[in-house]
Design a protein around this nucleic acid. Structure first.
Lengths: 352, 352
DNA sequence: ACGTACTTGGAGAGCGCTTTCCGAAGTGTT
DNA sequence: AACACTTCGGAAAGCGCTCTCCAAGTACGT
């Protein structure tokens, strides 16, 4: 036997704990202890076991292990679309949006170090939701990170009711006792308002996101509040759905309704990109004629021309934090529910 | 008992097949048959079982099922970075790039319909690779989609050696008998070359990607071949690493080396965005002074100004196809190795 | 020398499910 | 009425692992 190579012919039955035990001349239990680093094993046996592991090329079967330990080493990332009816075209947009990638990147930076894998799930229908929660209760994943799409999503509540460790990225639309990580969206919008006013803009409008997203509402509220404080009781507002095209349309609307606009706060960078196009078409220069502040500081902000002055949304950090929170919660289920709110900052570039 | 609600108190032991069997007054085996839709069950018993399922709120335990069926209903998406040493800053960039999102979106469109979940794995070190392959052989996932990052990745070979159903997105750097889905990158580059020449450009340069990526090499080769055919035996070339900044730098280099350049093919849209910036800084108008053709037709192409004429890379379709290929391979492991090559098309916009 | 306490390794009972194997019951033929 | 078939449901053997017991071994105090 060519010891130590650990090669196992393909197609053959994979070595089990039993096999290792036989080779090492000990019992399954002992091998299990050694593998899992539990003390109380004679150093000599310890070594024999490791030799046997090398010789047989043994790799533990995670599935079998999970069945008994009720731990899978997996966290689910659930994209919950409460109003979809299966192949919603929205999903394509969602994944293409830098938002998704930034979240995944942030999560992975933490999970990877912890040796935990991420399982992606999309749920839209009630049936999928029920099934997901059922699977989760069975320990299909140790916990879940929830990304809620627009709408009143029943999933967060279901998750807490089922006692599944969960953390949301972005505040839930309805009050639910669930851990979440969010951005002080209102403060961010205030920052934008303050900057536009300080810059000397007189007629400032806003392009907002959809009304049923908490983050979107907070940005509107924060912006209005700050504008009011600066003496602008009312601000012209047009809304989009966070896509570039919708931003373009919204800007046209805004321009039509308030032709004198000389400053605009756009609730995300992608829409700002569209708005920039609309302004160019209308022959307005940015920032000379109209100053613009975006939101997110996504890659689109740098790609834009002029580069966008925008509110920085530290999504990667937030995602990483949510992963840490979840991991902590998994380790200690009695941990009390908490939320972390990040403070946004303004990134100055050319557009305002 | 409030029948039919299917509610199970949290924290309590979840109902098992055994429980359902007891309630229905049949054996575990019969319940299993009913749940899995196997014929040969008396319609009456069939109904009693379903009633019992409803009453108990039974949800099958996927883990337990997988242990015996050797099917998990999971496909792994492996991002294989052959040269990373753990927390590589490259990963952040990778996820933020629209590339990743488009692939995930394409995969999910197929997997979701098939009721299969996607597990994200990042492997960098040799140890992670070995472990991944070990887990995979144990049926941790039914198959794997591989996304290889730059470099000579040993993973594809390991996967085929281990007999794991796998499909790569993008041709492997080294010849390995593995299923893959790729784009005719050379044809795409030819398209770009032809277009620039037809447009009347006299001095055409290229900004390429990194040298150790097959896709990148193919684009260079295809471009050169086509240019040679048009009588340009040599083309000035600068290279980047597919990021916006590197594109900006490369454009500056190109401009310095060949000031008379009036057309440029940039190997991806993100770099093209950067190149656009460099050209503006240099006071060159696009497309009047310098015409530009990008590659990918990512969201960046539309976001750019002027909007990019670019080679369409149907990544979503390709990812979807790779998922279908993998699923077919899982169903029939004897299926012969095949690859699908997509033909790119040119999308005309403002930049050329 | 005996009892007590602690360490160490093995036997075996599961985790929740699928699936083979069989016997019992039902159907039709001669 | 006896035979061969077919259909159907249950008993039970695992899948590969962990972990609780328990027995044996070792060390110590009295």
């Amino acid at each position: 036997m060519t010891a130590g190579t650990g090669r196992v012919p393909v197609g053959e039955r994979l070595p089990t704990l039993e096999d290792v035990a036989r080779v090492a001349g000990v019992s399954r239990a002992t091998v299990s202890r050694v593998i899992n680093g539990i003390r109380n094993v004679d150093p000599q046996l310890h070594e024999m076991v490791w030799n046997a592991v090398g010789q047989t090329g043994y790799v533990p079967n995670r599935l079998a292990r999970s069945l008994v330990t009720r731990r899978t080493g997996t966290v689910a990332l659930v994209v919950s679309d409460s109003e979809s009816h299966d192949d919603d075209p929205f999903m394509g947009r969602f994944f293409a949006d830098p938002y998704f990638g930034r979240v995944v990147g942030g999560l992975m930076s933490v999970l990877r170090a912890a040796g935990i894998q991420l399982a992606l799930q999309i749920v839209g229908t009630e049936e999928q939701r029920t099934r997901l929660v059922g699977d989760l209760r069975h320990g299909q994943a140790d916990g879940v990170i929830v990304l809620s799409l627009p709408g009143h999503d029943p999933l967060p509540r279901m998750l807490t009711d089922a006692g599944v460790p969960a953390v949301m990225i972005g505040r839930p639309a309805d009050p639910v006792p669930i851990n979440y990580v969010d951005l002080a969206n209102d403060t961010g919008a205030s920052l934008a308002a303050d900057h536009l006013v300080e810059r000397g803009c007189q007629r400032i409008g806003m392009i907002s996101g959809p009304a049923d997203v908490p983050a979107s509402n907070d940005r509107i509220a924060g912006f209005r509040r700050s504008m009011a404080r600066h003496g602008h009781a009312w601000v012209p507002l047009a809304s989009g759905n966070f896509t570039q095209e919708s931003g373009e349309d919204a800007m046209r609307t805004l321009l039509a309704e308030s032709p004198g606009v000389d400053g605009v706060f756009v609730a995300n960078d992608l829409m700002a990109l569209g708005a920039l196009l609309a302004l160019r078409d209308a022959g307005r220069r940015v920032p000379e004629d109209v100053a613009m502040v975006g939101f997110d500081d996504s890659s689109a902000a740098v790609a834009a021309s002029p580069a966008l002055t925008t509110v920085r949304h530290p999504l990667e950090d937030m995602a990483a934090e949510s992963a840490r929170l979840l991991l902590a919660r998994i380790d200690d289920p009695s941990m009390r529910i908490s939320s972390v709110i990040y403070e946004p900052t303004l990134v100055l570039r050319q557009s305002a």
